[in-house]
Design a binder for these strands. Structure first.
Lengths: 167, 167
DNA sequence: AGATAATATCTTCCGAGTCAGATATATTCC
DNA sequence: GGAATATATCTGACTCGGAAGATATTATCT
């Protein structure tokens, strides 16, 4: 028979299922199970960079959204909720924290009394610019094992998948 | 110049950064950013199957770990923590819930008085077998947009990455 | 204009996980 | 064998986000 393969964790899980539930095709785990575990591992690797700046990853997400929107670094809570994939309640709390830390300011929208305008403060902009550089350097390291071709293939596969799932 | 590309969400984010921080190479976001968003989207698609059985995804993870370990469907909390990638505290709480629902039982290990043995009850085994089939059918659907070649490539890339990050 | 519906944000309550430390039992080393 | 250390699990305080509903404002329809 075939030689002894060194299985990764998900590979071992799939092998267990093949014994216990041979009637079920568990091949999707080879992708979805691995993606799920990678997301956890990557979070664990990325979080320390944010934590060093006193930020949670969710809070950094908000600052980054404001920063990349360009001057005057201002968005509505609703726009922030959409781009960060969390509920409006989560955004409110993130903004409470960030406002308390002096990194963003909130005021009522001139155009729409229901809306708010959230703006990066000068301290906020300085901080996010600094943390963003470190964050990207960190992400580069996490991809160090891939060749250019592999990176390109992976990026395209993930993009196509997201599209298919209906972003 | 090149024609108008329809960008996905992460593509738009990267384009914004290219304007705001042209000095920073944000290409890792093409992979890590997309993977992060996909993990969230997939969770949202997978959760309803568990919820229909009155389970959180974390609780299902525990039942699945026990089930695939084979008869007598018994593991220690430590083993469960390792395979599910959560802390021992989280496992304790998951077991509290599952035990309360009559899906697992807990007793002191005969071999080691510090340890516990967690075992699937008959109801637990029946439930997880049922939910697992639906879960896998669901995962198949989520991969429907890929060809066999794409699936194979994606699985291999993710496996290699997990290995490189040091599972 | 007034009533009704829609929208944007915030509030409250709750569920789920982490972290640090507590507890109980095992192991090691003299 | 006893002290010191290591290990397995549990506990309690805390954080973060989700869900549903409250509030305030705006849009629509007659």
């Amino acid at each position: 028979m075939s030689g002894q393969q060194e299985l990764d964790h998900v590979g071992r899980i799939m092998a267990q299922w093949a014994v216990e539930r041979p009637d079920v095709d568990v091949s999707p785990q080879g992708i979805i199970g691995r993606l799920h575990r990678l997301a956890i591992q990557l979070d664990e690797e990325l979080r320390p960079v944010f934590a060093a700046a006193g930020l949670s990853d969710g809070d950094f997400d908000v600052l980054a959204a404001l920063r990349r929107s360009g001057a005057p670094y201002e968005l509505s809570p609703g726009q922030i909720a959409e781009t960060t994939m969390v509920t409006s309640g989560a955004v409110t709390k993130r903004l409470d924290r960030l406002e308390g830390a002096g990194l963003v300011s909130r005021r009522t929208s001139a155009a729409d009394g229901r809306g708010r305008r959230v703006r990066l403060t000068e301290r906020g902009r300085t901080l996010v610019d600094d943390v963003f550089e470190k964050h990207m350097a960190n992400e580069h390291l996490l991809l160090a094992s891939f060749s250019d071709l592999e990176r390109s293939r992976l990026a395209h596969l993930l993009e196509a998948w997201g599209r298919a799932l209906g972003a």
